[in-house]
Simulated assay, not measured.
Amino acid sequence: MSSPFLVIAVDDEPAILEYYSYIIPDEFEVVEFTNPIEAISFAKANLNRLALIISDYKMPEMTGFEFRQSLLEQGIDCPFSLVTAFYDKEMATEGMRLKIGRFLEKPVQDQQILDLLATEAKERIDSLNEDREMISEFLQETKPMLEEIEDLILYVEEDPHDIKSINTYFRLLHTIKGTSSCLGLLEISEYAHKYEDLITKVKDAVIVVNQKVIDVLLEGLDQLKNLYQIAENFQPFPTNLDELAKIFEADFSDDPVKVNTALEDNLSASSSEEASKGERVTKEKDEKITVSETLLADFLEMSGELTVIRNTIFKSLTRLQGKLSGDRDLEHL
């Protein structure tokens, strides 16, 4: 079940924060901060649920303008309203530069807060809901890839020389990494990238497949599934992902190894062949085209990403078409 949308209230006076929690309807979760620096960290971790930020202008740690500037520098661009005891032309000019939606002069009236929720916050929520639909489509589209990866791990455990399974494994992770990045799921993308680095080392015979490698591959897959579950529920991602991803940097040389010599020989032969030809694509006498394995892998990776993105967009457009059916102008377009 997804969590409610958030309103962050920042003020160095606890009584003001209590007022916001009282006046804002229960359909929103109000998170109070007396320190804007702490609010920045929280906002960054919960951006996909954040509907509105209301901040005081004059605070001990920084001004409301400095707070807004820090948010923007960290990519936190959501509706922002500033509460101030005074308002002049200079503030209005700076507010335009910082994309501040509204200035509220003290004392703030109940209706002003409710108007903010009905306009600024609603527009943001509509946008977030559209993003959520796209993300949900992506997760459903790529979930079968996780199941396929699990099967591939078992194949590689059974036969460390299974080059085809290793290449497919790499391609699936690469697709998840690329498409999740396109949709703003940076935590999934970054984790998949570090996971992919380990598969690259196996693929290039930098490390050999042993039980420790298999255990880490399975553990990494479990964590990737957990991240999918978090994304499905639009919950904040763990803040210690870098720490969790350190499993991919372990020393894999301790255990007795199943040396994948066939993989090494194959890579060596492939490299020698490409070096001697001096080109990636050659035309044979019988008019057949020989494509290097590297080029083919690149093509498969890109086509996989494009297929997922295409299917995600198509499903979202189909849903949107259903919502807007009856609008003649839009149907004509």
Rank of each mutant, 00 (worst) to 15 (best):
S2M: 09
A9G: 12
V10Y: 04
D26H: 12
F28G: 05
V30Y: 03
T34W: 01
L52K: 09
S55M: 07
T63A: 07
E66W: 05
L71W: 09
E73F: 08
E73S: 14
P79C: 02
P79N: 03
F86Y: 14
Y87K: 08
Y87F: 15
E90S: 14
M91C: 04
I100E: 01
G101N: 14
K106D: 04
P107C: 10
Q111N: 12
I113C: 07
L114R: 10
L117G: 06
L128P: 04
L128S: 06
N129K: 14
N129C: 04
N129Y: 03
D131L: 10
R132T: 09
E133C: 06
E141W: 04
E148K: 14
I149H: 08
D151R: 13
V156A: 01
D159Q: 06
D159S: 11
K164C: 01
I166M: 07
T168N: 15
R171I: 10
L172F: 14
K177D: 07
G184K: 10
E187A: 08
E187Q: 13
Y191S: 06
K194A: 09
D197N: 15
L198D: 08
I199R: 02
K203Q: 10
K203F: 04
V209I: 07
K212C: 03
I214G: 05
I214Q: 04
D215F: 02
L218E: 15
D222K: 13
Y228Q: 07
A231P: 07
N233I: 02
F234L: 01
Q235C: 02
N240C: 08
E243C: 00
A245T: 10
I247H: 03
A250F: 15
S253T: 15
P256H: 03
T261S: 12
A262N: 12
L263E: 01
D265M: 11
E273G: 00
V281H: 05
K285T: 10
D286C: 11
D286R: 11
A297H: 12
L300Y: 15
E301V: 05
E301M: 07
N311P: 00
F314V: 08
L317F: 11
Q321R: 13
G326V: 02
G326C: 03
D327C: 14
D329G: 08
H332V: 07
